[in-house]
């Protein structure tokens, strides 16, 4: 009986991240439009966009290989599994011990590897631009992410995300310099990894400003739908990480009552909406950076995270 409840909770988590992702993207676009004095699309428009794309014919080049055709499935699967492992409304879920923070970062790396290969598959200049720039950003953002993982792990004494979230939600950790530096670095890394301004413009059609869009330029139909869904799920994953690591209010612990789960759910959705509203405020207040200034941006996140790790090695009290 307990096993079935655990399985159900895990399944709810898996379904939740996918179901809520397009809504989060819709809220982001609406708030951004409002900030730019436009009316903007309805908040549920991404669902309709995905439905439309799924019913369109998928067109691809004569020389597209099997990697091109299977990449969208693999990218979506890897991102979905990673997002399902991040505690959203409850910690201590059934399979949370099978992958820790490092494995979650590596799963996102798998998705990125596949996407970069898919970008190079057809042999266009655009795909190459996207893949090479994406790997450059990743070469700085992934180490920064790993150092943030180290910071959190050194504070909590474990890399198991569920255990870390449970510990942080009890409030015994308190405010710390290292976690503050980690949050600062994490915000920069989240912007870089999710292809948001100032790193990449998700609404662009100019190759000088493209990274993610350039890699998926050739995709259409259901393949494009899966890739866009994967990008939305990745955004939800990063929001969930901010929520459970830095703002773990209301998250339900293991073996809690139904009311706690309901509260956790409400708290989670509330945090997602709050973050979805804050992101466009940040995006509209800065301009997109030149490509060769990205190292400055992501490098400062790397430096902040490295400083946090150094401080924690010197003394666990930082």
């Amino acid at each position: 009986m307990a096993l079935i409840v655990d399985l159900l909770l895990q399944a709810v988590q898996m379904a939740l991240v996918v179901a809520v992702a397009p809504a989060v993207v819709g809220v982001t676009r609406k708030v951004k439009a409002r900030l730019l004095r436009r009316i903007g699309p309805p908040m549920l428009q991404p669902y309709r966009d995905l439905w439309k794309l799924m019913h369109k014919e998928a067109v691809f080049a004569h020389n597209a290989s099997w990697i091109y055709r299977t990449a969208p499935y693999l990218i979506f699967a890897a991102t979905w599994v990673a997002a399902a492992l991040v505690p959203s409304y409850a910690t201590g879920l059934l399979f949370s011990w099978s992958a820790d923070l490092i494995a979650i970062v590596a799963l996102l790396g798998t998705a990125r590897f596949t996407l970069a290969l898919a970008g190079m598959d057809v042999g266009t200049a655009f795909g190459g631009i996207g893949s090479s720039r994406e790997m450059m950003i990743a070469s700085l953002a992934e180490p920064a992410m790993l150092l943030i993982v180290f910071t959190v792990a050194l504070v909590a004494g474990t890399t198991q995300l569920s255990a870390v979230a449970t510990l942080f939600s009890t409030g015994s950790v308190g405010l710390r310099v290292s976690l503050g530096l980690g949050l600062f670095a994490f915000l920069f890394v989240a912007v870089a990894e999710n292809a948001r301004i100032p790193i990449d413009n998700p609404a662009t059609h100019l190759e000088l400003t493209m990274v993610h869009e350039a890699m998926v330029l050739e995709y259409s139909g259901r393949h494009l739908a899966m890739i866009e869904a994967a990008a939305a799920v990745k955004l939800v994953l990063y929001f969930s990480l901010i929520a459970c690591l830095f703002v773990p209010l209301g998250i339900a612990g293991p073996g809690a009552a139904v009311s706690d789960y309901a509260l956790g759910l409400v708290a989670y959705v509330g945090k997602l909406l709050l973050l979805a509203a804050l992101l466009p405020i940040g995006e509209t207040s800065v301009a997109k950076m030149r490509v060769f200034r990205y190292p400055l941006f992501v490098g400062s996140a790397f430096a902040a995270a490295a400083l946090a790790v150094f401080l924690l090695f010197v003394s666990k009290g930082f």
Partner: peptide, 23 residues
């Protein structure tokens, strides 16, 4: 991956077309 493929094959169209590179 299989679940995604099944959902896509159930709800989405299976039409594909080969064409020149879009670029």
């Amino acid at each position: 991956g299989f679940l995604t493929a099944m959902i896509i094959h159930r709800f989405a169209t299976r039409a594909t077309r080969r064409s020149a590179i879009w670029d």
